[in-house]
Amino acid sequence: MFHIIYNLINSANCSGMAPEPADGGGFTNATLPDGMAMPGFYIIVNTLTNNRYIGISGNIRERFKTRLATVTEMGFNAAVMRAIGVTWGRVQALDSDRDQVLELPTGPVWNPINHGAVIPPGDDSTFKLTLDGVDINLERLLIRFVLIQLGAGGTVSNNQMAATPYVNPTQNTIRVWLGWDGMGGLFDPGWQRADWLPGDDGAW
């Protein structure tokens, strides 16, 4: 069985993105969470509205810099931003015919120690993995996983990729994993997995 693992084990809440009022009517400098200067995937979770946004970037920190001005201009304070969490990391792919997968409560562990090839994101928005000669859009797959398999309810604001069911384009079942961290105390760290079956009946 082929495994796709969204290993999003870095996280924080977004309170630092809201600058504090300063003397004279200005604001202090806003800050981004540490450790974002990396390529990969991220999920933003607004616990006030139970909404999620899923994205990819060649540099997550640079992507989040574009959001700082919006936070300030819209007047979001630290209390509001503290209720918004983000978890981020990389995607890994593994063929378990070559490496045994041990499915522990803490997530997937490989024996021998081999976490598969880390798949680097490209510069465009169609981050893909070629499997069995066909392309899998890993961003769309994660969006549909969050909507259909995570069991958290709520909404996902990636409207373009969220609306249509995604059919596994291969002839084989793919086991999809999602791991997340606590997002600054908003959640418990955890793992969720689901099998993506081929054909229309297995679509997410």
Rank of each mutant, 00 (worst) to 15 (best):
L131T: 11
R98Y: 04
G35K: 10
G179P: 02
P121H: 12
A93N: 05
V45T: 07
G58Q: 13
T106C: 07
I119P: 03
E139P: 00
P39S: 13
A37Y: 09
D99N: 12
T130I: 05
I113M: 11
R90F: 09
P169L: 01
T47G: 04
G199T: 13
I119N: 02
D181H: 02
D201K: 13
W204I: 15
P108E: 04
T31E: 12
G35C: 10
T106D: 11
I136K: 05
F145T: 11
I9G: 08
T70D: 09
F41V: 10
V167P: 01
A83E: 14
M1E: 07
Y6C: 03
F76N: 11
V109A: 06
G199F: 01
W177I: 02
L129S: 08
L142C: 06
Q160G: 06
V134E: 07
G179K: 11
A22Y: 08
V146W: 08
T170E: 11
I4Y: 08
P198F: 01
V71P: 01
F41E: 02
L150Q: 08
P19V: 11
W204C: 09
F2V: 05
M161R: 13
F127R: 09
Q92H: 14
T66C: 02
D201C: 05
L150P: 03
I113L: 14
A163I: 15
R67Q: 11
N13T: 01
A162H: 00
V146L: 14
D135T: 04
G24R: 06
V134P: 08
C14P: 01
L197M: 14
G179T: 06
I113V: 14
G154I: 11
H115K: 09
S57P: 03
A69F: 06
V176E: 00
R63I: 10
I174E: 08
V156S: 03
L197F: 10
Q100A: 11
S11G: 12
I136H: 04
A69P: 00
N159C: 01
N10R: 14
A78V: 00
T126W: 04
N111G: 04
T155L: 04
L147K: 15
D124I: 07
R175C: 02
G58Y: 08
Y6W: 05
N59R: 05
L197P: 03
S57D: 09
T49R: 05
